[in-house]
Write a protein that binds this DNA or RNA. Structure first.
Lengths: 200, 200
DNA sequence: CCCAGGATGTTGACGATGCCAACATCCGTG
DNA sequence: CACGGATGTTGGCATCGTCAACATCCTGGG
């Protein structure tokens, strides 16, 4: 049927699409998304400079594919983190912590997900809707029905999203985020600050 | 001395640096930072394709200059917003609201500020330190001295930063942010949600 | 079994870009 | 008033995104 990995025969690659995505992520991690070049992805995958066009309409489409992958992973991470929890507040916190951890584990994906310009509107629209709806449900479960669900979702999203962005941009004092576990701790600390001295 | 604007004489431009910055911001607003081209900036400013190099070492340097300008404006906006307020919590909220308003008023600057890749570390380091320190002081004034100031600052920053990013990326349901004033209202709503149902 | 057509890769080309070097023009200062 | 530095210009190079034409390989219908 559709074995994701066919054998390479020297002419056909076997799984170029996945190889290109891997190469792109690696190159972005090294030189930043701005300097990503399709031709270098092709080189890394060992194919000619035009081969990528058999799998992606354009360079932007490649980036959109990375974003799609990232949103799927994020959705899954959020789902898994809340799995088994019943207390609405604990569920929401778990989502937030998982969000930050995801950003740390897949910094390139996270960056690409939220770097795509509105140019790509047609491609971008509805990208990550699942993840958003999951979060919105978790938030509404906490705020109750008298709060505008969109407000609830945006509020709940802001903290983990802002924190992730700040970490990835290196704006959080070094030493506070030595690894993913430290980032989780930081996320918990931030949330509890808003439940404690900053909130109330 | 240094009149920022000399007269244009047909050969020399008069104020090319500022004109290039303006053109860059305009072009980024139109086509996204990814497709910004120095040569098109030059065309917009009415000079030849290599003229920009008399004012910016590289394309990245142009972007860094935009970021610097943005951080200066942000710092000033935060300062002005807190001006005259004495209650620590009100000051912090005012900063947050001003932050979101700034992002809406200068979306390109905001995006460039937080899009620069760690490549530019040497250029980026300490960029926006002033704005960060102002926020940290405002946050510590709320949390009190027994809270790690870095935690306080990051927590206080996360909400307006996350909210701004979500808005600029178009991830906030349309209609919730029709203009800058609506964005301010949304910012206040988000903050009060964290003080109300989401917090405590 | 085989061969025709689609899927996948390759080569070559075009225009645009970032950046550099060599040259031109103009301003202010000795 | 001449001359040196600041500012612009022209031309060139390597690279890039993309397209068209061509090559290779796999697969399914006879």
């Amino acid at each position: 049927m559709a074995p994701p990995k066919k054998a390479s025969d020297g002419y056909h690659h076997g799984d170029l699409r996945a190889a290109l995505l891997r190469a792109a992520v690696e190159l972005i991690a090294e030189h930043g998304v701005a300097k990503l070049s399709l031709r270098e992805c092709a080189r890394h995958a060992g194919v000619s400079h035009a081969a990528p066009y058999r799998h992606f309409e354009s360079k932007d489409a490649l980036l959109v594919a990375i974003a799609e992958e990232g949103f799927a992973w994020l959705h899954e991470a959020g789902r898994a983190a809340m799995d088994g929890l019943t207390d609405p507040r604990k569920r929401l916190d778990a989502y937030g912590v998982a969000y930050v951890r995801f950003a740390l584990e897949h910094p390139v994906h996270h960056r690409v997900m939220f770097t795509l310009q509105p140019d790509d509107d047609s491609l971008t629209a509805g990208l990550g809707r699942e993840a958003f709806e999951l979060l919105q449900a978790a938030a509404v479960a906490v705020t109750g029905p008298e709060v505008d669900p969109r407000h609830a979702a945006v509020a709940a999203w802001s903290i983990p999203h802002g924190l992730s962005m700040l970490i990835l941009d290196g704006r959080v004092p070094a030493g506070l985020v030595t690894d993913e576990d430290a980032a989780e701790d930081l996320a918990r600390a931030v949330l509890s600050l808003w439940r404690g001295p900053l909130g109330g």
